[in-house]
Amino acid sequence: MLLDVKNLAVSYGKNKTPTISGVNFELDEGKILAIVGESGSGKTTVIRAILNVLPGGGYVSEGKIIFNGRDLSELDADSWRSLRGKDISMIFQDSGAMMNPVHTIGKQFVEYIQTHSDLDKKSAYDMAVEKLELMNLPNPENILKSYTFELSGGMRQRVGIAMAITFQPKLLLADEPTSALDVTTQAQIVGELMFITRGTGAAMIIVTHNLGVASYLSDNLIVMSQGKIVEAGATDDVVKNPRHNYTKSLLASVPEMGRRRYV
């Protein structure tokens, strides 16, 4: 087992009632877990808690997160720094926003690689080129010379994924990785995420509100509502035989081609 989340609760600031509570799940190596739910259901809070990057005074108020046999709450700042971006890395909704707009992508990519390895500048650069090629980006050297705003949304997202998989992390956390993209680009990125995780054996937790993407990608599915897990299980079971009423209503409201028409 790679990741074991036990009875997790997260609170913000002085607020006594936790934002999420009673979150339990396990994740094995190489498996994909999807967390779905509406906005405000706490799905992003779960993966931010795993990476210990909760915003604005958020803290784990209860429970444990065990990654690769280590209790993450016992790590100090240095251990976190070596863990993040190497063993666990994150793909954001808009990878352009995670980078500095006034530096080239290449500068930031090389800096990132050198932070986590002993490579010199030249080999770090070559490594960056190699990772971009893996993501089907044409002309990687040109991309390394560009600034984030010069790339399209799909290209930026590919750069973000290329950075996230650079050190072959054991666990990838993806927060709405395709939500800002067009449908055809979304299909491309989802296909690439599938290829990457199956190819490198990385486990992935994908947070999304798109039930179609979740059911396509994932082995296991968690449905969250108002900070609690309402249903969890193998993806096919949950999608085909939902037990909880919330899951049923959520599935029923997904627009499907040729299912029903209102006019």
Partner: peptide, 25 residues
């Protein structure tokens, strides 16, 4: 056709090959 195929459906069979429109607009 490409747009129709790019829709991820919950009714789609698992691991069915997704046909991807190459390139960008």
């Amino acid at each position: 056709h490409a747009l129709l195929k790019a829709v991820f459906s919950t009714e789609r069979e698992k691991n069915q090959y997704i046909e991807i429109l190459p390139g960008e607009i």
